[in-house]
């Protein structure tokens, strides 16, 4: 099973990294990172905190664009072009196909988020003589969240087209970060616990303006990540298993 998963993930990775969209998004991300120091807020003397905050926001936005570009149309295109037949007619379970596809996309996202972060570090080093290592803590959170969004997109794409997937995924991200607005900070503990929140992955404040995140928090993020991805892919497999190709 591991061999088949890694084979599919490897093929998805190789195919994805040769697509122009990855480099276009990274290029524009780099241009924007270079432009951050020109923002008006810098005139007020709040420098490194705002730089980190805007950098993380930029990385988050770019990673959402990229993960949707890579994940939303992957399965629908393979079904449409029938490339999926060559895979699923072999001794491959649909679970392995979906999970392998997700792993490939997640690996590309790792490279892209790392690329963004390196560019932002380079700008920080050049402009402020500070490598801002803490940006990597934010990068980890963003990468994990892109994995969750990727799992959601791939699962929905098992039964829907790319437009529906993109809209559903953006809605999921919006809802995932709206717990305080929907339930309220003073809402019941039960409602807050059951809310499908992605706020665990929002570490902009501690990374940009605080002292970063500790190992316990990072471990909690990992648990949330595994739980989200596991449940989403499982739902996707249940739907995909029932689908005629």
């Amino acid at each position: 099973m591991i061999g088949r998963l890694s084979a599919i993930a490897g093929a998805v990775f190789m195919d994805a990294v040769r697509r122009r969209v990855v480099y276009v998004v990274v290029f524009f991300g780099a241009v924007l990172a270079l432009a951050i120091p020109t923002l008006p807020a810098y005139g007020m003397g709040i420098v490194s905190g705002i730089y980190r905050e805007v950098s993380l926001a930029l990385t988050f936005a770019a990673s959402m664009v990229l993960v949707l570009a890579l994940a939303a149309n992957r399965v629908p295109a393979e079904v449409e072009r029938r490339t999926v037949y060559n895979v699923l007619s072999k001794p491959v379970r649909r679970l392995e196909y979906l999970a392998g596809t997700w792993m490939g996309v997640f690996a590309v996202m790792g490279g892209a988020v790392a690329g963004f972060t390196l560019i932002e570090q380079a700008v920080a080093l050049t402009r402020y003589h500070d490598p801002m290592w803490r940006l990597w803590e934010g990068a980890l959170a963003i990468w994990l969240e892109s994995g969750v969004v990727g799992a959601f997109a791939i699962s929905v794409s098992a039964v829907a087209g790319p437009v529906v997937v993109a809209v559903a995924s953006l809605t999921m991200v919006f809802i995932g970060h709206a717990r305080d607005s929907v339930v309220g900070t003073g809402g019941s503990a039960m409602a807050r616990a059951l809310y499908p929140s992605l706020d665990t992955f929002n570490v902009i404040n501690p990374v940009a303006h605080g002292s970063g995140i500790d190992a316990v928090y990072a471990a909690g993020m990992m648990v949330a990540f595994v739980g989200w991805v596991g449940v989403l892919l499982l739902l996707g497999v249940v739907a995909f298993d029932r689908r005629d190709l």
């Binding site: 040769r18 029938r82 490339t83 037949y85 060559n86 007619s89 072999k90």
Partner: peptide, 17 residues
């Protein structure tokens, strides 16, 4: 299906490979 080979009609493949 380990011992099975299948050629679909008008096969396509990941184009970047």
């Amino acid at each position: 299906r380990a011992g099975l080979g299948f050629l679909p009609e008008q096969p396509y493949f990941p184009s970047q490979l």
